[in-house]
Amino acid sequence: MNQNIMPASKMGFGCMRLPLLDESDVASIDIELFKQMVDAFMEAGNTYFDTAFVYHNGASETALREALVKRYPRESFTLATKCLAWAMPDGESAKNCLDVSLERLGTDYVDYYLLHNVGGKRTAKFDEYGMWDFVQREKEAGRIRFAGFSMHDNADTLDQLLTAHPEMDFVQLQVNYLDWDDPHNKASRLMEVAQKHGKPVIIMEPARGGRLCNLPPQAAQVLEKAAPEAGQAQWAYRFCWNLPGVLSVLSGMSNLQQTHENVASYRDNVPFSPAEQAALDEAVAVLRSLASVPCTSCNYCVKGCPANVQIPKVMELLNLEAMTNDHQFVKDLYSWQTAEGPASACIQCGACEAMCPQQIDIINQLKRAAEKYE
């Protein structure tokens, strides 16, 4: 692993959920409060800030210019931003994202530039627009220091992408203790693939979008008994900080209290003791027991589906709501994670149920998902 790619610490500041002056306006970032958060983060010795072309409708990047870039020496921090080429109408627009991001950020280079949300049918747009070669040219020009990509997909897809693009410097993946051995997401396999290709990993969703900071009582009590003083977020972050091959662990912070708590947790970070690991394993088992659909993500159902319904993903989201008791969070995930084949596209042919080794009543479960999330 190229040691020059490593930031000063593994604590990353995710700038996707910044504090707002007006909750109805995602661009109304409270700059003065954000400055205090940046100061607390930097004073604790952390340097990694993560944003994207689309966060807060672009205001996240301009907020970083005001709160960070204008107030600290450029060499004292590292910046990451991203391009959603698949959402752009053409290659010129996709490539122009870098120019816009640099202008918004008020800098002439970014440390980490990501091709954002590669995977599935979206990868074709990155290929069509020549984005892989583009980021390498921009590295040579000095406007990008390190190029990578983010993805919400499986380990086989990651392996294929890194085999096709060994020139990429790093990857950004969803990893957390709930997904680690999950049959759908299998975050442990993602980490194994990245390690096989020698790529460091930026971890996103270490707390599963905040869901691991708001556990159901049955799971929360297990962790509280093992470490009464530790917060639920600390359990989630410690799991990720101490994994091998980690470049940075992103934490989306929305207020000053979260910033203080997170930097304090990182300052005190140590690997789990055997007793703590056992408690975490027990908490995960409790969460798994709350799942309502016995899907193992074997994907047999998908192969025979004439409507291309994303059946395993729908089952996963039904289980996620059962485990987290957060309907709105899961509904928001559903809106984009099943876009290629929502539950309502089911024609009730029964091919999936005939193939399912777990004998799940898939048609009824799809009806339930459509009613809940569409």
Rank of each mutant, 00 (worst) to 15 (best):
V314D: 11
Q232D: 01
M16G: 00
Q221Y: 07
D22L: 02
L18R: 00
S292F: 01
T123Y: 07
D111F: 12
Q232H: 12
E282T: 15
A236E: 11
D268C: 12
M1Q: 09
A370F: 05
G210D: 02
L68T: 00
Y109Q: 03
Q257S: 06
C352M: 15
D182Q: 11
H184M: 15
T62R: 00
A345M: 05
L317G: 02
F13H: 00
F53M: 01
M323S: 13
M168D: 06
D361H: 08
G209Y: 09
V118L: 10
C298D: 11
M37R: 00
E282N: 11
I31G: 01
Y334D: 04
L280M: 11
R211H: 03
A264R: 08
E23L: 15
D268E: 14
P216K: 15
D169N: 06
Q234G: 06
L18V: 01
S76R: 05
R208E: 14
C298E: 04
Y177P: 04
D99M: 02
M168A: 08
S60N: 03
A370H: 08
D169S: 10
M168P: 06
N242H: 14
E61T: 00
V193Y: 06
L212F: 10
Y113H: 01
M191F: 12
Y72H: 11
L223W: 14
Q36S: 00
N242V: 13
S265W: 07
L84Y: 08
A275W: 06
R143I: 13
D108M: 07
L212E: 04
L318C: 06
A279P: 06
Y237H: 12
A307N: 10
T107F: 00
P216F: 15
E138R: 09
L158Q: 09
K367F: 14
P357D: 07
V100Q: 02
P216E: 08
L102H: 04
